[in-house]
Simulated assay, not measured.
Amino acid sequence: MNGFPWGDFALNLAAAAGAAFAVMLITFAVALAKGLHRVVDVAWGLGFAAVALVSYAISAGHGDDARRLLITVLTCLWGLRLAGHIARRGRGHGEDPRYDQLLAKAPGNRDAYALRIVYLLQGALVWLVSLPVQAANYVPGEMSWVALLGCALWIVGLFFEGVGDFQLARFRADPASKGRIMDRGLWSWTRHPNYFGDFCVWWGLFLIACDHWAALVTVVGPLVMSYLLINGSGKRILERHMQGRPGYAEYAARTSGFFPRPPGR
């Protein structure tokens, strides 16, 4: 089949939505039992892994098997690493102040408000951002150099994300770092190596799907993720929180805000 199977892809869209919302609803039940809504951050990566696995399973007989397996493995590796990192980072801590502030505005029942504004919204975002992953399972023909370029970009992204998180965790664990701003390693090249890594990962996954023109319509996925990382709940909110820290203004003046560049003086 040389054409893109739009009918089967539409069924995949529905199944992927079911997988994303199922992960979020299960997480909501866990959050109610624990009394902590911060567990939804762990579900973010798990939701993408669930969508990738469901899409791989129901797309059997379509697309290129090598591309299907590659996009599934890469998405699951990214999602499970992120979920594990967030789970370890949050172990033993109370509620995230972000959710306390958000739910303080609840017009009625806090939990019902959280279900709508936090869990169902994140489920919808998982479905939307993952559109390239879903489409890649149905792209006909063998992978080209464009897909290989996407795989290379994914590797760069995972390197920045994983190494950046590791360096920050080691910095925070050192008592000598108390009261200081992390400005070493990748954090001297960009103030947000982990967010830049996410950016590369999702544009890389999009390129893997781009061996057929039909997959171009899924560009909304990496565009939404880029907006979230730069102007949404990522860089913008974190920098607003950090602005009052001693030394942060000087760090920001000499360090790139997002795309890496050699550290300034």
Rank of each mutant, 00 (worst) to 15 (best):
S233N: 14
H93A: 14
S55L: 03
N194H: 07
G61W: 09
A173R: 13
A66P: 04
A124C: 06
Y119E: 01
E239W: 10
F160S: 00
G247N: 06
D174V: 07
W127F: 15
A87P: 01
P246L: 05
N231H: 15
L77D: 01
A114N: 02
K34W: 05
L186F: 09
Q243Y: 08
Q167G: 06
A214D: 05
Q122E: 09
R261T: 13
N231S: 14
D8L: 10
N231V: 03
V42C: 03
F159Y: 15
L69N: 08
A49Y: 00
G123A: 08
G18D: 04
D65Y: 06
F259A: 14
V133Y: 02
L121P: 02
A147I: 10
T75G: 03
A17K: 05
V156C: 13
S59M: 08
L25Y: 05
N2M: 09
A15R: 08
L207E: 01
E239P: 06
L168W: 00
W78N: 05
V54L: 06
L115Q: 00
G92T: 12
A83F: 04
D111L: 12
W78L: 12
G264Q: 10
G90F: 04
L128G: 01
L70Q: 04
G47E: 04
G35I: 06
M143N: 09
F259W: 14
Y56A: 10
C151E: 04
D96H: 11
S256K: 05
G45Y: 01
L120D: 01
G3E: 11
M143S: 14
T72M: 11
P262E: 00
F259H: 04
W127A: 05
W203V: 07
L70I: 12
G234A: 03
C200D: 01
L25K: 00
L149V: 14
